[in-house]
Simulated assay, not measured.
Amino acid sequence: MSTDAQQQAARDWNHWHQERTATVAAPYGPLSLTGTHWLSDYPEGRILAVPGHWAEDGDEVVLTAGPEDGLSVDGKPFTGQVRLGADRGPIDGSRVAHGGRRLVLLSREGLWAVRDFDPDSAARRAFRAIEATPYDPRWAVPGRFRPYDASRTVRVENADGVERGLGLGGEIAFALDGVEHTLQVAVEGDGSLWAVFADATSGDTSYRFRFLRPAAPAADGSVTVDLNRALLPPCAFADHFICPFPPPGNTLSIAVEAGERRRTDG
């Protein structure tokens, strides 16, 4: 890579880092998550931290609320009963709100949960920065995507201690300092890739695991593996996320001293 190209890559990385910090610190960013309440833990339908009555009904949830609950649905004060599906858009676009809080419905492997996003969360007030290592061209290398013949699902522990399925569509192979490495990846709907990985810094000078999201591979399978853009997972910002741990084989033997490392509070 030429000097000019390296300088441009460093500028692009700085812009990316600034945007990431702004996204994390946004009113409904990951720092605002104050609870993930699984309805199976509340068979009577009353969640102490969340107003309303929430009841599973097949592939929907029935919310019942009175005036004393102070809820709104679709931006309007709500009383009565409404059937709801999982929220899949931006947090601030969720159907149910309680004042400034957004109550987001989540469905995982047949179980329902209500997530409570509060812009006034203690974590958001305390946050100062994402500690990250400045761009280094050493960590941006060519790789190759090797798709599996058929998608695979492996069971991995999640951050909440529960084992869940993680879908994998292939692996990326790349070399660092002459040594080849591989990471198993999921293939997103737009063709981009997603890896959950750990390395020799994990739990020491960086969070216990990180994410990597390479762009969609070219037609020949070539893809850039840029570890400068290793991401902290959402559970690094709030304990109530259920991020998957790295699948077997996705712990690199080297120290990846690049990308996002830790959350910094003040």
Score class of each variant (00 low, 15 high):
T3E: 14
D4F: 10
A5D: 14
Q8I: 05
W16E: 13
W16A: 11
H17E: 13
Q18R: 14
A26P: 03
A26V: 04
P27L: 12
L31S: 06
L33W: 10
G35Q: 05
G35D: 12
H37V: 02
R46C: 08
P51I: 03
G52V: 02
G52T: 02
H53K: 10
E56R: 06
G58I: 02
D59T: 11
D59L: 02
V62D: 09
A65E: 04
P67S: 10
D69M: 00
G70N: 08
G70R: 03
L71H: 02
S72V: 01
A86W: 03
I91K: 05
I91W: 03
S94G: 15
R95P: 13
G99Y: 05
G99F: 02
R101S: 09
L106W: 07
L111D: 14
A113P: 04
V114F: 00
F117W: 12
D118C: 01
D120V: 00
R124V: 09
R125F: 06
E131H: 06
E131P: 00
T133H: 08
P142F: 00
G143V: 00
R152P: 07
V154A: 08
V156F: 05
E157V: 09
N158R: 15
A159R: 12
D160A: 11
E163M: 11
G167E: 15
L168K: 05
I172C: 06
L176E: 13
D177T: 06
V179Q: 14
T182Q: 11
L183W: 01
L183M: 06
A186G: 14
F197Q: 08
A198K: 01
T205F: 01
S206L: 05
Y207P: 05
Y207T: 10
A215K: 10
A216R: 12
P217N: 09
V223H: 08
P233C: 11
P233K: 04
C235N: 13
A236I: 08
F237M: 12
A238P: 08
A238D: 14
D239I: 12
D239P: 00
C243L: 05
C243E: 08
T251N: 07
L252P: 11
I254P: 00
I254A: 07
I254F: 05
A255T: 04
A255C: 03
A255Y: 01
V256Y: 00
E257T: 12
G259A: 07
G259R: 03
R262T: 15
R263I: 15
T264G: 07
D265L: 10
G266P: 03
